[in-house]
């Protein structure tokens, strides 16, 4: 039972990371109707910048903090250079152009940092010592850093909800998503609004990358695997819905983790051990996609269809 609790924590923590990446993607998709494949690259850049600045300043936390404005600036620059010209184009052009951004940025990263995984400082406690772990149940140690990630996963969605639902800027964003012409007619610079939303999404992705850097390897292509899972999250949650992205991210995180933890053992009841292990492992890695197919069958627009869907 305690095992299940720890595995659930693992799933939540993975889900939170997925949410942070998916939130920005979903926001941009929902508000601007822009398919941004390059979102994974922004996640990767966040991790690289955090890693490099962390080593440079000698503190992981400082590096992660400094990565935020850098990610924001990169987002602004990319928006100005590429994305601005895509808002009115069809989805195919957007996919092509953003895929081009992936190739360019990945190759540039490789040229700048090389293809080997990067050095990342371990996050330290406020006292300067190692973070260590918290004993949860039955002597199982849970890394404190992962608990911090779960904490972030509680704070950020609340903050996002507050921003979008309770502030004037959020109101404009919501209005801009559904009635862009009307909002423009009222004297709001819709273009600037889109720039801000895009840069904010990029910053969220960069933040997720920075947060993930002590756990996942910081290497070229690190954004690709996450991006695929994020699209699954968005499709399950409903395009453009932050709430849907949150629930779907946790669902995907939990499903993936619990599946990996339980399936091989569960299959042992009906198969011989070595077959159970391998089928279980294969099945567990498909579970998320099977779930997506199932949800799409019953709710083609996802769990929480957003404004545009």
């Amino acid at each position: 039972m305690s095992m299940l609790l720890v595995q659930a924590l693992n799933g939540l923590q993975f889900g939170v990371l997925l949410f942070l990446v998916a939130a920005g993607l979903s926001l941009v998709f929902g508000v601007m109707d822009l398919i941004n494949l390059a979102h994974g690259v922004q996640y990767m850049l966040g991790a690289y910048v955090a890693a490099t600045l962390g080593v440079w300043t000698g503190s992981f936390w400082l590096g992660a903090l400094l990565a935020l404005p850098v990610a924001l600036l990169v987002g602004l620059a990319l928006e100005w250079l590429v994305f601005r010209h895509l808002y009115r184009r069809d989805h195919l052009s957007q996919v092509l152009a953003t895929f081009g951004v992936i190739l360019t940025v990945e190759e540039a990263t490789r040229a700048l940092w090389g293809s080997a995984p990067q050095t990342v400082l371990e996050p330290t406690a406020l006292t300067g010592g190692p973070l260590g772990g918290v004993e949860i149940v039955g002597g199982l140690l849970y890394p404190t850093y992962r608990l911090i990630i779960i904490g972030v996963g509680v704070v950020v969605p609340l903050l996002l909800w507050f921003l979008v639902e309770r502030t004037r800027a959020g109101m404009l964003v919501r209005a801009g998503a559904t009635h862009p012409a009307m909002v423009a007619a009222l004297g709001v610079d819709i273009r600037r609004l889109f720039t801000v939303v895009f840069a904010f999404g990029a910053m969220l992705a960069g933040f997720a990358g920075a947060l993930a850097s002590p756990i996942f390897p910081v290497a070229p292509g690190m954004g690709d695997t996450v991006l695929i899972l994020c699209f699954v999250v968005i499709v399950i949650g409903g395009v453009g819905s932050i709430r849907g992205a949150f629930i779907a991210a946790l669902l995907v995180g939990l499903l993936d983790t619990i599946g990996r933890a339980m399936l091989p053992d569960a299959l042992r009841l009906v198969l011989d051990p070595s077959a159970a292990r391998q089928t279980g492992a294969a099945l567990a890695s498909m579970l998320v996609y099977i779930a997506m197919a199932g949800i799409l069958f019953f709710r083609p627009a996802g769990l929480f269809p957003g404004a545009r869907a």
């Binding site: 693992n10 983790t257 933890a261 890695s285």
Partner: peptide
């Protein structure tokens, strides 16, 4: 334990 080649998080296995 066999994990997929695209595995990101090992927390399940580590537990």
């Amino acid at each position: 334990i066999y994990v997929p080649l695209s595995q990101l998080d090992f927390s399940t296995e580590i537990t």
